[in-house]
Nucleic acid binder design. Structure first.
Length: 124
RNA sequence: CGAGUAAGCCAGAUGGUCGCGUACUAUAUGUACGAGGAAAGUCCGAGCUCCAUAGGGCAAGGUGCCGGGUAAUACCCGGUGGAGGUGACUCCAAGGAAAGUGCAACAGAGAUAUACCGCCUGCCACUUAACUCGUUAUUAACGAAUUAAGCGGCAGGUAAGGGUGGAAAGGCGAGGUAAGAGCUCACCAGCAUCCAGGCGACUGGAAUGCUCUGUAAACCCCACCUGGAGCAAGGUAAAAUAGGAGGGAAUGAUAAGUGGCCCGCUUAACCCUCGGGUAAAACCGCUAGAGGUAUCAGGCAACUGAUAUCGUAGAUAGAUGACCAUCUAAAACAGAACUCGGCUUAUAGACUUGCUCGUAAU
RNA sequence: GGCCCCGUGGUCAAGUGGUUAAGACAUCGCCCUUUCACGGCGGUAACAUGGGUUCGAAUCCCGUCGGGGUCA
């Protein structure tokens, strides 16, 4: 795994998972949790920061649709990231039913998953 | 006013808060720029890169009225012919079936030539009728010959008519004939030759000759075009047990490049020497290009030329989003991935212009 | 992103212009059996889609849609 120095990390920067091996690692060893719109995988990474990846299957729609829901997932995660415990790799996978949801419904679904997985600092 | 037809244009805007990619700098509360008309399908054509500076032959594939435009095209423009529409106008893979081969199910007598029915002629047999002759005889009977009609058979002529079929030997009329037939004639249709016009497709005209099924998005013939692969090409640095560099041997046989085959070309192996520890990433290619806009000139037009002016994405888990306010309600199809020219397909709503037809008024 | 292949009943599939689209499994009904299975008889059910060529198209040509493979 690539060395990642602590000094490069800014507090509110979003770090994305880019390597195929990282994705496979999370899928293989991480825990999964889901609801009707989203599937979430998460795994401790011992880096002190959160890294996030998004995946939208071709079955969801054409490229415009897929890009839009990736952005909606990204934007919602960006708004929630500051209230999360740090040190996890998280992957969100959109399910087919997500095309029925708008921005707020995606955000609520994501918040419920993060609360259920105890990553969300509710009391802050 | 209504209906229609053709062409063009836009593809939410403005403001605020948070956020993303690239470039730059004075390095931070920074500045600038940041998806489409189809970015799509990947159907054509090119640039570019590698393989011979892309070579020869066969095969295979594509295009297919004519002329022009273009880097090129299967695209575009103008024309010809055909089809549709009252019209504006639209559509057409539109060479050759008279070079040859194949196929044409079922139906039908017969499918590229036929003779089933029918019509006509001749011969034979039978029946009937008429008339004549002979024998017996009162009418009448029998026999023979001739003629006519009918039915049947045989031989021949015919392609008018029948009914099938997508298609049946050019159409229709008259003459003609035993019956018929382009057999002959008039008109019409088509083909060949000729003359005139046009760069040409083709158009017009007279005479002579001829009458030919369809199918080439069946094989084929003719004319023209096409070498293969694709930015995951390819290169730089780095690099192994498989990769690289240098030198030698060999010019046979083998393998690879070469992705239809053969020839040709290039490289490799076989030996010796050098150097070297990572597994999937980094960088280049990567955006200024057959570019856009305006004016003038040429051209019916597509387009071309000159001048001026503009600066316009470059990601690599892949950059444009979220929310609020106003515009009546912000919504259609849809996301660059090397680039460009076309085609095809998808598309809410809004706008502009030309033309045609109908109705009414003047 | 590039390149290529394939779509025939519920499933597997034959069919390369011509009569009603072959067959197997599955399914439905009847018979057989005390019942089930096996077996026998019969039925339902399809050329992805839109055009074109042709007298005639699952087949030939073009477009669209869907599915799959491959290339570092």
């Amino acid at each position: 795994m690539r060395p990642f120095l602590q000094s490069e990390v800014y507090i509110h920067d979003m770090v994305k998972i880019k390597r195929s091996s990282d994705f496979k690692n999370v899928y293989r060893y991480g825990k999964s949790i889901s609801n009707q719109y989203i599937v979430m995988y998460y795994l401790e990474n011992n880096l002190g920061i959160n890294r996030v990846g998004f995946s939208v299957s071709k079955k969801v729609g054409k490229s415009v649709i897929r890009n839009r829901y990736k952005r909606l997932l990204y934007e919602n995660f960006r708004l929630l990231d500051r209230d999360l415990f740090k040190g996890y790799d998280i992957i969100f996978i959109a399910r087919n039913k997500i095309i029925e949801a708008d921005f707020y419904m995606v955000g609520n679904a994501m918040r419920r998953l993060l609360t259920k997985s105890s990553l969300y600092m509710v009391n802050k």
